[in-house]
Amino acid sequence: MAHTAILLAAGQSSRMGTLKGLLPWQGTTLFEHQLQNLRESVFSEIVVVLGYEAEKFLPTGKNYSAKIIINEHYQNGKCSSIIAGVSAAGKSTETILITSVDQPLQSAVTNKLAAALTKRPGLVAVPIHQGKRGHPILFSSQLRNDLLSIKEERMGLRHVIQENEKFLLEVPVENGQIHLNLNNQADYINALKK
Rank of each mutant, 00 (worst) to 15 (best):
A116N: 09
V126N: 05
I98G: 01
V109L: 05
T99Y: 08
A114K: 01
R120M: 15
L97D: 00
N111E: 07
A114G: 07
S107F: 13
I128D: 02
S107K: 11
I96G: 03
T99P: 03
L97G: 01
V126F: 10
P127D: 05
L113N: 00
P127L: 06
K112R: 13
L123Y: 08
Q106V: 15
L117N: 01
L117A: 04
A108M: 11
L123R: 07
I96K: 02
K119V: 10
L123D: 01
L97M: 08
S100R: 07
A125V: 05
S100P: 06
Q103D: 08
I96W: 01
L105M: 09
Q103W: 11
A115P: 06
T118K: 15
T110M: 09
P127S: 08
L105N: 01
V101M: 06
L123I: 12
K112C: 11
I128W: 07
I98P: 00
R120F: 15
T99G: 07
R120L: 15
T99H: 13
R120E: 11
A108H: 10
Q106S: 15
A116T: 11
A115C: 15
D102Y: 09
L113E: 00
P121W: 09
T99Q: 13
T118D: 14
T95A: 11
T95V: 14
I96T: 06
S100H: 09
L105D: 01
T99V: 15
E94Q: 09
I96F: 04
D102P: 08
V124P: 00
L117D: 00
K119R: 13
I128Q: 04
G122L: 10
K112G: 07
A114M: 04
L113S: 01
K112Y: 10
I96Q: 02
A125S: 06
K119C: 11
T95M: 08
L117R: 00
K112W: 10
P127T: 04
V126I: 12
P104S: 12
K119E: 05
P127Y: 03
A115I: 14
K119Y: 07
L97P: 00
R120I: 14
P127K: 04
L97W: 03
N111H: 12
N111L: 09
V124A: 07
Q106I: 15
I96S: 03
